[in-house]
Write a protein that binds this DNA or RNA. Sequence first.
DNA 1: CTGAAAGCGCTTACAG
DNA 2: CTGAAAGCGCTTACAG
Lengths: 328, 328
Amino acid sequence: MKDVAAHAGVGLKTVSRVVNGEPGVTPDTERRVQESITALGFRRNDSARVLRKGRTASIGLVLEDLADPFYGPLSRAVEEVARAHGALLVNGSSAEDPERERELVLALCARRVDGLVVIPAGDDHRYLEPEVRAGLATVFVDRPAGRIEADVVLSDSYGGAREGVAHLIAHGHRRIGFIGDHPRIHTATERLRGYRAAMAEAGLPVAPAWESLGSTAPERVAAAAAGMLGGAEPVTALFAGNNRVTVTVVRVLAAARPVALVGFDDFELADLLRPGVTVVAQDAAALGRVAADRLFTRLGGARPEPERTELPTRLVPRGSGELPPAAP
Amino acid sequence: MKDVAAHAGVGLKTVSRVVNGEPGVTPDTERRVQESITALGFRRNDSARVLRKGRTASIGLVLEDLADPFYGPLSRAVEEVARAHGALLVNGSSAEDPERERELVLALCARRVDGLVVIPAGDDHRYLEPEVRAGLATVFVDRPAGRIEADVVLSDSYGGAREGVAHLIAHGHRRIGFIGDHPRIHTATERLRGYRAAMAEAGLPVAPAWESLGSTAPERVAAAAAGMLGGAEPVTALFAGNNRVTVTVVRVLAAARPVALVGFDDFELADLLRPGVTVVAQDAAALGRVAADRLFTRLGGARPEPERTELPTRLVPRGSGELPPAAP
DNA sequence: CTGAAAGCGCTTACAG
DNA sequence: CTGAAAGCGCTTACAG
């Protein structure tokens, strides 16, 4: 900028005005400055700008795994909202590791992102307290924050799972298995709670062997499914706790006899499988959009009480959830 | 930092030393400074640091659409490499709009990212010249840069398409249609070139009606497929230019008679469809990894000539590509 | 082992 | 309409 000013024979501030399109520069001066900018290949250094202005016009997004299809539309929705507010997205994956989440969040804070959208991996976010006190806006998505007051935007995991399991019961099933994600993860336990509620409301007992929470690694899920489908009292239907689980279960069932299945989370091509896979769909893009809107409302100066928003789910029958119990 | 120094009764530089873990501080002083840091909730402001050091420890990633499943593993791979080098990822989607790509790239440059990984939407990247001259490292992925010398990492679109089409020919097809992405996109024309080469090598004529490039919007693709499957000389097999096209074609075919199909790009569940979808698989994660490695090699000070790397594709037969021509 | 001074490239507040 | 001075929060280069 100094070079441009010298080259154009004007003051620093005049260059600043031209670069930022501020008024109060004669067309003639402006043209001269523009020419110098082009000649020197000048590009404003936003780091310096940030240092003065205090805002970076960027927000951080911490998610579990960029490669998981559930997070694609969510990220994209956050990006679109950020873009509408002139902000860039800085992001990273926690890989479901609380320590890595913490490092990532703190690195983003050190860059002084204006706000943070976090899909938490950990369940203790007190490390954020100094940041929040310093004015950082944070919104949690998909799972609530731990031990800290903050906005959170969730799908109705409990209600969705309950509806999905009730759907299976309505189609005649009495022995239904639940395979979900690790019990450390909030959505997994909420969906389990929905499963139990639906069973209880129908007056159906739940055998301990019908509930399996743990890693979504295909081997673990396949073993769980095989266990429930075999044994003395085999289940006649399965409820899968998220799309990773559903896909593995579909693979297992493709190699076995058809068993009724409802999965939480929609996924591409679910309708083209035979039978089509009945799902409890959640709107990933809406989660991202609502969370980002909330964040920018705060960045705009609003200071409402932290709020919890639950987005409804939608049961999409496609065939697999309407299969009757197989004859024993 | 000034506050911490005052609070601990030491000089600024000493706080800097403690914050950065530099040697030359007595354990006692260090402890005092640490206490002040905690008491005041101090977090280093990386913007200021960047301004001095000249490096931001962040790289920009510009892709087409964060929500497209092809880019998930690619992004994740870039992120992992960046993480190994202590860098964060700033990213955005161009939405296949050259002007938006340009804005995004320049915004990233203004933030002074150390380097850039770009999946180009446009075909003229001369706007990057001042940046490159100023030392910005840039690697293009999936498609080459336009009118500028730069590293590029691609899949072998030509070879992969040629192999896929030859596979269909080997299974007895003589009338094969090609449906691809917009001709403005490099991969689309390369794959078309591969299609033509395979047909020519087999001595097969290609009717103009068998080639259709354009938007990957489902309506456009469905119409193109319907056109090729109907008419006087219907095709007996289709080659789909990318995974968006393949998915739509599978949908169309599910509602019609079975037609042989090979798609460029693998996708989840392709093996569970009936028939399984034969694909020419490319390794999205490897594209991202190789590109990011190249970038950090440059950031490490290496100044090799810009290089073009082509990653091989892999034909994965699953059923749809091995269907014989239907009796006329 | 420790610290005062200068400077990174901008913007803010002020004066002409 | 234009510009000189101060300062954002750090690090660098240097001196004690």
